[in-house]
């Protein structure tokens, strides 16, 4: 039995002639936050979809809790406890907090054949769960549209955890958020990991990833540039590894040069 929750070994994915992913390897332990960093077009979206069962990898293997598996569908991945929270969050803003929380998995009561949606129990659970994250929903029948972006993100994560996620794949959870909201979401992610979940945090924002991540994988043009523990790599190094890093340092040199010239 391996001590990894989930392993993705040498994953490759091709779309016709395009090599979207080549030999990407990621391993995730319990309670660990693994950050997947990459600029736009680095292959993050393809990788997420492969990890969550939307795409089937063309090469490589997926091992969940020591067992080699193939995800036939996103539902398959979900059944094995690998839950993905996409950027759109799968929340309906016109629906209430409770109805969103239990969307597709409503608790029922009553006789078989005449079951009703147990809205009281659902309200209670939704309030309790949101309370645990520090979001006070006094009225769980309020529409999700009235919540802030950070609260919505937390709701989506909280829902995934409630429904038995062991591995959380979070797609850019902080990209649309302000500084304060982003820190609330990041704290919640740390808390979730401290309770024993494995988290794969996908982002292009090193400043959000570095404080919370345990290990970092950098993706560039469909290939992994390696995985590093936090102690082995600095924030600046990570930043420069992502595509655009060299360009930024070049820009710095050029600016210095301009500065020098103007002084003369």
């Amino acid at each position: 039995m391996s001590n990894y929750l989930v392993e993705f070994n040498n994953i490759s994915k091709f779309f016709g002639k395009v090599i979207a992913l080549k030999d990407v390897t990621m391993k995730l332990k319990k309670g660990e936050i693994m950050c997947l960093l990459g600029d736009n077009g680095a292959g993050k979206s393809t990788l997420i979809k492969t990890l969550s069962g939307v795409h089937k990898p063309d090469e490589g293997e997926i091992i969940v809790e020591g067992k080699k598996t193939i995800f036939a569908s996103p539902k398959d991945a979900l059944d094995m406890g690998i839950a993905t929270v996409y950027q759109d969050l799968a929340l309906v803003s016109l629906m209430s907090v409770t109805r969103n929380f239990f969307m597709g998995r409503e608790p029922q009561k009553g006789l078989p054949g005449l079951k009703t949606f147990d809205i009281d129990k659902a309200n209670e659970i939704a309030s309790e769960r949101m309370g645990q994250i520090g979001i006070d929903v006094r009225d769980p029948s309020q529409a999700v549209g009235t919540m802030s972006g950070g609260e919505r993100q937390c709701l989506a994560i909280s829902r995934a955890i409630y429904f038995g996620a062991k591995v959380l794949i979070l797609d850019e959870p902080t990209s649309a958020l302000g500084v304060h909201q982003a820190s609330v979401v990041l704290k919640y992610i740390v808390k979730a990991a401290s309770q024993g979940l494995g988290v794969i945090l996908i982002t292009h924002n090193v400043h959000h990833a570095y404080p919370v991540g345990n290990r970092f994988t950098v993706l560039n043009r469909g290939k992994s540039l390696g995985t590093y523990s936090k102690k082995d790599i600095s924030r600046e190094k990570l930043l420069s590894m992502m595509a655009g890093g060299e360009e930024l340092s070049k820009l710095e040199v050029e600016l210095k040069e301009m500065d020098r010239i103007s002084k003369i």
């Binding site: 996103p74 309906v92 109805r99 969307m103 597709g104 998995r105």
Partner: peptide, 18 residues
């Protein structure tokens, strides 16, 4: 609940199993 979800955001609803 599925009716509201399907009309509100069919992609989101599908993603959570509706």
């Amino acid at each position: 609940n599925w009716i509201f979800a399907s009309g509100g955001d069919k992609h989101g609803a599908r993603n959570v199993g509706v």
